[in-house]
Amino acid sequence: MRDTEREEYVRQLHSRLLQQDPVAPSEFAETFLNELVRRLRAKASSGYDETLLLDAASDALLDYVKHPSKFDPSKSAILTYLTMAAYGDLLNMIAKEQRRQRREVPLQVVEETLSDGNNTIELENRVLGGITGTERDELLRRVAETFPDERDRKLLNLMMDGERKTVEYSNILGIQTLALDEQRKIVKRHKDRITKRLQRLGGKINGK
């Protein structure tokens, strides 16, 4: 799409959103979410949690389609506006995450249990067998807190079980209808995200 056509298309979509066309939010997301994520990645540079980045981009876009009158087309281009909004959301999410981490007690249970220096969290007998009931409850509570999403906990369980089959993860993610290559990529992305969260929790999974 050429720039002028695109501008005109944005103007029309914006106007349809203002008129509460029920399909316009979906059309807008389908057309611009990809580009918004790309711009946000470029602006945020590397090192950001991918999930937070996608959350921020999604939230900014959803907020706009819900409240289109907040945006004034005469002041800036829609993608510039959304990238700024998403970046602001991202910074807020990161600050919130950091505040949450500061409030947390260090995970001494795991550190003390593992004497081999691997600093590995494995919810297996190796770890859970050597700690008291209270410590075990605390550790499991921390895991539940780190993975509030039930789907993430299911993925984590599969990882803990050493499951390697992509299809098992795809079923949980609901992406089994996609091509296998795409499924692998998405599953890997989620596994990496979960591993990162585990690392932040205080250790590594299976020595990865």
């Binding site: 389908e30 979410l33 959350d55 999604s58 959803l62």
Partner: peptide, 14 residues
């Protein structure tokens, strides 16, 4: 397909 993934993410937030 990556757009589907992003839409899926947004749909979950929505």
């Amino acid at each position: 397909k990556s757009n589907s993934f992003l839409l899926q993410h947004a749909a979950r937030r929505a």
